[in-house]
Design a protein around this nucleic acid. Structure first.
Lengths: 201, 201
DNA sequence: GGGCAAAGTATACGAATGTATACTTTGTGG
DNA sequence: CCACAAAGTATACATTCGTATACTTTGCCC
């Protein structure tokens, strides 16, 4: 009873027949997960491969090296642009709400910010992450701002966002974990508003 | 013939006669430097020992293990409490000014925030750093605040500070590096003021 | 239906890791 | 002056790392 009608284009193929593209994608997804959870230096190619159901050498066959795999993983992680798209007036509120929600203690979002924070110690991967954030996030967010020095204000906003990710999900700061989400959202929103809102004068 | 002064490439490790306390301190200083520059996992005990002018085994003799060495290094790094002490009204301004100055491109401050950021990927050292920040920084800063939820607002302020350290000195964000220091200071100050200043209503 | 390239695996290598055990050097007190 | 403990070193061990080389298995097409 070896029924094998393999849909060559299935997003989540359970029993995977020999399919280079699907295997490559499985490795890439496994890499995003691993790099996000333990960072670049903490994730071994053997672990990544095993979680994808293959051996370690396929990583190098398909991606050349661990570092090139990381480069693609950064793109994948930053790609799903969930940049809150709406009127610029609600920007601060939307960002604050999404941030507090995704960094909640019970959530385990595979955030690109986590990938970046945990891969930042390595200078080479830090540079790759910096380029990824600039290419995928910084540009779009800056385009939504009005007024002067939009790139600078954007980078400061990203600093705040990364800082909250760090304290809540990487370090596990007690005060920020136990904080009331609504009040926390209001405080973050107030800070972002100083940066992002169009100056009313 | 005194032909052996070269290995002491440390800061001020002159000709050190056999002195347990001095050696211990040299190792500890070297550890702070190494952990700050490359993080816990990136720093090998051999490197730390060599920079202190001794062999690797002295690290374990004096500190038990690399992890215990890190614990002491965290305390040393966070100990020089430069928390701007002044009237609470100027708190935001002082913090912002010190932050922007120390994260300037030309500065290479051995900041505890750098130590924390670069050792955060490792869960064990992340916890040690979290405890250190809570013990050394969070308490004192929270005590300077008035109003409600001082611990929460303190943690948020530390998020901002850590985020700026990350973007400017770990990632190397272009916009924040090239930004005018005075304007950057004003913007950071404005954000902190939202959090720290006594509500005037 | 049989070959043949593609997909995947096995093994190994050299370097680096933290640290345990055993050794050597040296300052100092009786 | 000289032993003896303290200070410091040398060597080794067991892992783990990324990846290179050589091998085996499989789907597909003529």
């Amino acid at each position: 009873m070896e029924t094998e009608p393999p849909p060559t284009s299935g997003p989540s193929a359970a029993k995977r027949p020999r399919n280079a593209a699907a295997t490559r994608e499985a490795i890439l997804r496994s890499a995003v997960e691993a790099f996000t959870r333990v960072g670049y230096d903490g994730a071994g190619v053997r672990d990544i491969a095993k979680a994808a159901g293959v051996t370690a050498m396929l990583v190098n066959r398909y991606f050349g090296s661990k570092e090139q795999l990381f480069t693609e993983a950064v793109d994948v992680s930053f790609a799903p642009r969930t940049v809150v798209t709406g009127d610029p007036a609600a920007l601060s509120r939307d960002i604050a709400a999404a941030l507090v929600e995704r960094t909640a203690p019970e959530a385990d979002h595979l955030s690109p910010f986590l990938l970046m924070l945990r891969s930042a110690p390595n200078p080479r991967t830090a540079e790759i992450a910096r380029a990824g954030i600039e290419r995928h996030v910084e540009r779009e967010l800056a385009a939504m701002l009005t007024g002067e020095h939009t790139d600078e204000r954007t980078a400061l906003a990203l600093s705040v966002i990364a800082g909250v990710w760090l304290m809540r999900k990487v370090l596990g700061n007690t005060a920020l974990i136990e904080a009331d989400p609504e009040r926390l959202t209001r405080q973050v929103e107030a800070m972002l508003r100083v940066l992002l809102d169009p100056e009313s004068d």
